[in-house]
Design a protein around this nucleic acid. Structure first.
Lengths: 151, 151
DNA sequence: TATATTTCCTATCGATTAAATAGAGTATAC
DNA sequence: GTATACTCTATTTAATCGATAGGAAATATA
């Protein structure tokens, strides 16, 4: 299960995607409109910033913005920064490989092959779904439930 | 990332799968052969037992065994018992649906649709991979690295 | 029935992580 | 030079993880 930190982070970058090319956005604006705890959000954005997903400017007229356009930032990137590797076990992680310490023999492990499958399936989705894609999908989803009265 | 509890549990049921139809297996035997902390393993097996995956008998000649044959127990079941839902967010869980409390409006959530995709992809793998399947896969994997000297 | 065996149950412990907040520091626009 | 807004470090509280202890309950067998 994704942590609140990750969910907050995704909400925030989606908001920044919405405001892309409209100038810097204040942390407090994101916190207010998305109902997120401001101080916590501050830490989250800082982390995303350090990992190169965001751009920030201090002082008056400052704020946060996406470093790349929404169609070039993948959900997988955001999640990796805030939650860690996508892989269910570290020994099948592409970005953070580490042998499992419980595992005497990686070869005869058995679950490794299955978990690799899982990792690849997750990555196939999250590393190919951009913030822009999420927007389009959300739009579609909302339209399905919206009755369109055309006069 | 899967917890040690879950990994231990998987190791244990795989061992039980190996010993299926060969009578009850002692916790201490599993702990010893798989190098798992005995007391911790005890709690894990108890949980799997309560959720109906295992069969147990107390006293001399007792021990644990799989309640169903290895080809009828799916990895997904084991993981759900020990780790919780497969879904990355509770609002897309099939077995443990619960609205996310961060989420004002599930409809306009945006990430929900993506996470549903992820959940389905994970389930497609783990709910169709039985303990027996894992065995076959492990065998194949080991054979790939075994030079066969035929005299 | 007595006893050894083995799972079952409850409680507890230390360490780590999650979620959140506080407050001072630093850069920037005007 | 002052208000603004991000940056950094530290702390708090609660929850979870990993593990262990010790006795209760059930069972086989002598």
């Amino acid at each position: 299960m994704l942590s609140k930190k990750t969910k907050y982070g995704i909400q925030a970058v989606l908001y920044l995607a919405e405001k892309f090319n409209k100038g810097p956005v204040l942390i407090s604006e994101i916190a207010k409109t998305q109902s997120l705890p401001k101080k916590f959000l501050e830490a989250i954005l800082l982390e995303l910033n350090k990992k190169g997903l965001l751009h920030s400017r201090k002082g008056k007229g400052g704020g946060y913005s996406l470093k790349r356009p929404p169609n070039e930032i993948m959900l997988g990137e955001v999640i990796r920064v805030l939650e860690g590797p996508l892989a269910p076990v570290s020994c099948v992680s592409q970005t953070a490989y580490r042998p499992c310490d419980e595992c005497k023999d990686e070869l005869s492990c058995g679950i490794k092959v299955v978990m690799k499958e899982v990792r690849d399936a997750i990555s196939k989705i999250l590393d190919h779904k951009s913030l822009a894609d999420v927007f389009v999908q959300r739009k579609h989803e909302m339209d399905k439930f919206t009755v369109n009265y055309v006069i």
